[in-house]
């Protein structure tokens, strides 16, 4: 799932840097505030742990083995914000030292594996266990499901990022410049292996490690260690600002895409035409949907190609928006225990 350099065009990786920078900034500020001087060794050790998780092979029926990414596990034990920073650290080390993932793609990779994965895992887990005892067996199943779903979320996002490349960046005659396969190829291929294989490895590891922790060190599950699941409760008031910021970013994303496109001479009017000719059939129907939706308003200049471009960007971003929105709603709906532990 580590996207290398050269797979994503500048519009895409630039956008992800724009998304991740405020998130990183926010997360480190918050961790520094709640964990004080402890945040440095805490994050370093959590990061070291997330790195070495991948060194463990889990046997799978049929004789093969696989390793987990651990995004959900780390988020459940350490809280999603610490997980975000710890996994980001690991991804940077992997990119620099092992060539796993590109430098330009760091932000995109962090978005998938350090943001989407732990947050999805964490909130799925919290919903499933809400109201249960800190050491009830339900937690084990919840953790397994969180592991399974979260890695599939991450893979889906990676697939979408790769799949949109031929649509947003190509030569005037429509030949893709970066990752060459469009959504209808990238998404099924990327998600398939995670749905049928890696998802289960992740589920087994997340579930069984949580079971082990419950058995041997239940205090970790109760969050009695002061450093655990830190930030959420204490800075509750600031959540609004964060989500507002992310919201604004999402709204600005299409603008950013367009603006950067023109700045680099990507989206001249002919370029836009040819781009839209390249949009696959699936998007054409979406385009139709858009036109009929907007037709009543009869805005001049909103011709069909432009609408379809918007429709396309819209659909690429809707996923991001949904995740954030869902996470936000869940965090609001969770019982106070979940937020202050």
């Amino acid at each position: 799932m580590h996207i290398p350099d050269g797979y994503l065009g500048p519009q895409t990786y630039g956008t992800f840097y724009a998304i991740m920078l405020p998130i990183w900034f926010w997360a480190s500020k918050m961790l520094k505030k709640t964990l004080k001087a402890k945040h440095a060794p805490y994050l370093a050790l959590c990061a070291a742990f997330s790195f070495v998780i991948m060194m463990f092979n889990v046997p799978i029926p049929g004789g093969s083995t696989g390793h987990a990414v651990g995004g959900a596990l780390i988020a459940i034990i350490m809280g999603p914000w610490a997980a975000l920073m710890a996994i980001s650290t690991v991804l940077i080390i992997q990119a620099l030292l092992f060539g796993d993932g590109g430098i330009t793609a760091i932000a995109a990779n962090c978005f998938n594996m350090a943001f989407v994965m732990p947050f999805a895992g964490y909130y799925i887990y919290r919903i499933l266990v809400s109201g249960s005892d800190a050491v009830s067996p339900r937690r084990v199943f919840a953790a397994a499901i969180a592991g399974y779903v979260s890695i599939n979320f991450a893979a889906f996002f990676a697939a979408v990022e790769l799949g949109i490349q031929p649509l947003i960046a190509h030569t005037p005659d429509g030949v893709p410049l970066y990752a060459p396969y469009s959504l209808n190829v990238a998404v099924p291929i990327m998600t398939f292996e995670h749905l049928v294989f890696f998802g289960f490895v992740e589920a087994v590891v997340t579930g069984l490690v949580i079971a082990y922790i419950i058995r041997t060190e239940p205090s970790l599950m109760r969050g009695s260690t002061p450093s655990l699941v830190p930030a959420i409760g204490k800075v509750g008031g600031n959540w609004k600002k964060l989500w507002a910021g992310i919201g604004v970013l999402i709204l600005l994303t299409p603008l950013g895409l367009l603006a950067s496109g023109t700045a680099w001479g990507e989206w001249t009017s002919e370029g836009l035409e040819s781009l839209l000719n390249y949009v696959p059939e699936g998007f054409k129907s979406l385009n139709g949907l858009w036109s009929s939706f907007m037709a009543g308003y009869n805005i001049s200049g909103w011709n069909s190609p432009f609408l379809s471009a918007l429709g396309y960007i819209f659909s690429a971003i809707v996923g991001v928006g949904l995740i954030v929105l869902i996470a936000f709603l869940i965090s609001r709906l969770l019982p106070a225990e979940g937020r202050s532990s």
Binding site: P41, Y42, A44, F49, V205, V209, A211, Y212, I213
Partner: peptide, 23 residues
């Protein structure tokens, strides 16, 4: 599976403890 995950759990506990000590 049980063996591997219990080792992961162990390393996890050690990491958390070590972070306190390094602190």
């Amino acid at each position: 599976q049980r063996w591997v995950t219990s080792q992961i759990g162990n390393i996890l506990k050690r990491s958390l403890q070590m972070s306190e000590e390094v602190h």
